[in-house]
Design a protein around this nucleic acid. Sequence first.
DNA 1: CGAAAGGTTGACACGTGTCAAAGTGGGTGG
DNA 2: CCACCCACTTTGACACGTGTCAACCTTTCG
Lengths: 223, 223
Amino acid sequence: MPIGLEVSEIKKLDEMIEKRRQVKQGQMLYANGDPFTSLYAIRTGFFKTCVVNEDGREQVTGFQMAGEIIGLDGIVSDQHSCSAIALEDAEVCIMPFASVEDLSREIPALQRHVHRVMSREIVRENGMMMMLGNMRAEERLAAFLLNLVQRLHARGFSQSEMVLRMTREEIGSYLGLKLETISRTFSKLSDDGIIEVKQRYVKILAPDTLKKLSNPQTCQTVL
Amino acid sequence: MPIGLEVSEIKKLDEMIEKRRQVKQGQMLYANGDPFTSLYAIRTGFFKTCVVNEDGREQVTGFQMAGEIIGLDGIVSDQHSCSAIALEDAEVCIMPFASVEDLSREIPALQRHVHRVMSREIVRENGMMMMLGNMRAEERLAAFLLNLVQRLHARGFSQSEMVLRMTREEIGSYLGLKLETISRTFSKLSDDGIIEVKQRYVKILAPDTLKKLSNPQTCQTVL
DNA sequence: CGAAAGGTTGACACGTGTCAAAGTGGGTGG
DNA sequence: CCACCCACTTTGACACGTGTCAACCTTTCG
């Protein structure tokens, strides 16, 4: 994924990625408490990451799709502090973190890339804090939908239609709302003619209105 | 700060830290949009970091004290995406990020340390999402106070008393609550005999009760 | 075809926000 | 050194958004 590498460097990267792993829908890639050994690059499929406290309350901390890296939470204490669960059948590349570190000492462009990936995650979470701390339900859902469709579009899908891979409850957990509120807010956006919703299928009819509802800045940076 | 370095390596680190900078109370160390060049290690003083969206809504994303690193948000896009403001007169070490990268290619222990610092921030923010998404006002404030006093204690201060460096409004922004709610919650904890509050002075009278109010797991990991 | 999981909608409760007024304390200038 | 001012804090009354609980509907899958 980093750009500007020489052929020999790309070869080393290929060797580092020792193998791939299939993860069936509903299966965990790693769980809270698992020893940390590797980062995972998602090749295909869709994941959620979540933390659970002992009350049993679950917080979805992110949704990840092809091309994104997960597992960064494990670095600090050599064990994972959240769980990653496939929301559809998925395949990941296993990147042993020790190899990542070795190689990024040799290849400055890779080092740079790793730092950027981690910083991007920090900035994304800053944006999430803004969402969770300051925005109302409608704003949160608008920002969420815009972010999702933008990321899908960057992967060659439509910029107006999508099929959600997660339940209302999972969206709610991510956005700090209850599933009923998500459902009601979908209905409201639909009644207002801003989106079309049929279960997990969502079509954005008035993207500009949706952007005004969410937050110009937030759309760019957040999520 | 990384441990297990040889003398020669420590010397290189010292050379990297080109200079220090004084930041007066209320002054910005860096602002949203500033070009990113360096990380900052806080030597003395107390900071807040915050993001602002164009509605003018401000979200405090963290409070940082001596020994902590700020500026990681700037790596991904070579410019800062939040602002850092001193809440009391402070001094920081300026660590040019290019030098950090150069040196961590030479010194694996430093590389490891940088990765851990970034991962720790990601995990902290995961915990904040749990707070903002799932916890009620009293739980949030309890967790906040416990975290703060624990970090102060690790720096040689009391484990039961502290003087807050931030206003009710800043606490509220951080915790996703309004300043009046913070004030009321302080009063409630005080009425219940759990803490003693006099303006910015806070004394924890019943730490165990406070821990139950917040969340055992959260106290360890979060914030 | 039936059951289970997920989604929608309504009525009502409750926690937090909003607005307003008054109290407190610290810093500055006369 | 005192007094004033301003920023911060506290508290009350009320509003409002979201949560809770319950019933019913839809879709999927064995």
